[in-house]
Structures are given as structure tokens and as C-alpha cells.
Computed example of a mutant assay.
Amino acid sequence: MANLLFICSKNQWRSPTAELLFKNHPLHQASSAGTSDKARIRINQKMIDRADVIFVMERKHQQLLKQRFDITGKQLVVLDIEDNYQFNDPELIGILEDILREYL
């Protein structure tokens, strides 16, 4: 089972929506976190170490991870999804399903 980690800024809308897509998934386990001090769940090194694949919503999240954490050897994917969606927004779900098709 692969551990997938989804990261956005505040862990309120985008990354929890992506995490929810993998609830009860037979092959993957997903978690989510945010990079902001105000994040619902704030990213930490332990979460990064446990992840097999890290998905970030924007390039700025990738840069923050590189500055703050050791991501050596980690597969990191930038999804390029801007902060324009609410939690579980049908349009966001469609975008995520399209991008993450090979994992779903």
C-alpha cells in the first residue's frame, strides 16, 4: 500500500478534498497537511518520511518543503491547482480525479 500525502496552504479545502478521494481505497492510503502556521494539520518531517508520494497543490508549496524539510529521494508532484475552490467542490473533485487517475 502506497502512502500518499497531499499538501496545500491551510489544509482546509484542496488537500482534504484530495485525501477524501482515497478514503477506503484498496491500494493507497492518503493523508493531508498544510504549510501555513494556521493550517488545520501542519506538515512535519514525520509525515514526509512516511509518504511514498507527495502531492503539492502549487509550486510555492514545493519550495516551502524544500526550504523547511528533508525531501531527499521523495517523489514530489506539483498539481498546479490554485486556491480557488471550497472543500469537496465538484469542479475540484473533477480536476483531482483527472490528474490522479493513475492512482485512483
Rank of each mutant, 00 (worst) to 15 (best):
M1E: 14
A2Y: 09
A2M: 09
N3R: 15
N3A: 05
N3D: 03
L4D: 13
L4H: 04
L5N: 02
I7E: 01
I7H: 00
K10Y: 11
N11T: 02
Q12E: 15
Q12V: 12
Q12K: 10
W13Y: 10
W13T: 06
W13F: 08
R14T: 03
R14G: 00
S15Y: 01
S15Q: 03
P16H: 08
T17R: 09
A18V: 08
E19G: 00
E19F: 01
L20Q: 14
L20I: 05
L21R: 11
L21Q: 06
L21A: 08
F22T: 10
K23H: 12
N24A: 13
N24H: 15
N24P: 06
N24L: 09
H25E: 15
H25F: 11
P26V: 10
L27N: 15
H28P: 14
H28S: 10
H28G: 10
Q29F: 12
Q29C: 13
A30K: 08
S31C: 02
S31T: 13
S32R: 05
S32A: 04
S32N: 07
S32P: 00
S32E: 00
A33C: 09
G34D: 05
G34Q: 04
T35R: 00
S36C: 06
S36V: 12
D37K: 13
D37R: 13
K38G: 07
K38T: 13
A39P: 13
I41N: 05
I41W: 01
R42D: 02
R42A: 04
N44G: 05
M47E: 07
M47W: 06
I48V: 13
D49E: 14
D49C: 01
A51N: 11
A51S: 09
V53H: 07
F55I: 03
V56F: 02
M57S: 02
R59P: 01
R59D: 10
K60I: 01
K60Y: 06
K60H: 04
K60T: 00
H61I: 01
Q62V: 00
Q62W: 14
L65T: 03
K66M: 06
K66E: 15
K66H: 11
K66I: 08
Q67K: 14
F69C: 13
F69N: 09
D70A: 08
D70L: 02
I71Y: 01
G73M: 04
G73R: 13
Q75P: 05
Q75D: 07
L76M: 04
L76K: 02
L76V: 08
V77R: 12
V78T: 14
V78Q: 05
L79F: 05
L79G: 01
D80G: 03
I81G: 00
I81E: 00
I81V: 10
I81M: 03
D83M: 15
N84V: 13
Y85P: 08
Y85H: 15
Y85V: 03
Q86P: 00
F87S: 02
N88F: 02
D89K: 05
L92N: 08
I93W: 14
I93L: 14
I93G: 10
G94E: 15
G94W: 13
G94I: 12
I95Y: 14
D98S: 11
L100E: 09
R101G: 03
R101K: 15
L104R: 15
